[in-house]
């Protein structure tokens, strides 16, 4: 429910290219907030993975 509310509850309005000054800021990239090393720690220390992007390698935590 939280996921649905965050995604669809915000609505969606057409924004022209010249209106996107704020959206161009690098902190507005919707990638993983965790960096490579931090994401690796989470993948090992939590039972859940997924929802990231791109190819994922093995945990290497034999």
């Amino acid at each position: 429910m939280v996921v649905a509310a965050m995604t669809f509850g915000t609505g969606c309005a057409g924004v022209k290219p010249y209106e996107r000054g704020r959206l161009a800021h690098p902190t507005m990239l919707l990638g993983d907030m965790a960096r490579v090393g931090e994401a690796h720690v989470y993948s090992i220390r939590e039972g859940a993975v997924g929802g990231g992007s791109g190819a994922q390698g093995g945990c290497g935590c034999n």
């Binding site: 939280v2 996921v3 965050m6 800021h25 507005m28 907030m33 997924g50």
Partner: peptide, 27 residues
């Protein structure tokens, strides 16, 4: 078999940015 649904929200203010991510997971 793992399944994840992730929602991300980014909102920009004059000199600050709020980020909120939520992931629901099941396997």
């Amino acid at each position: 078999h793992r399944f994840a649904i992730t929602s991300r929200l980014g909102r920009r203010y004059s000199s600050s940015t709020l980020r909120l991510d939520e992931r629901a997971y099941g396997d």
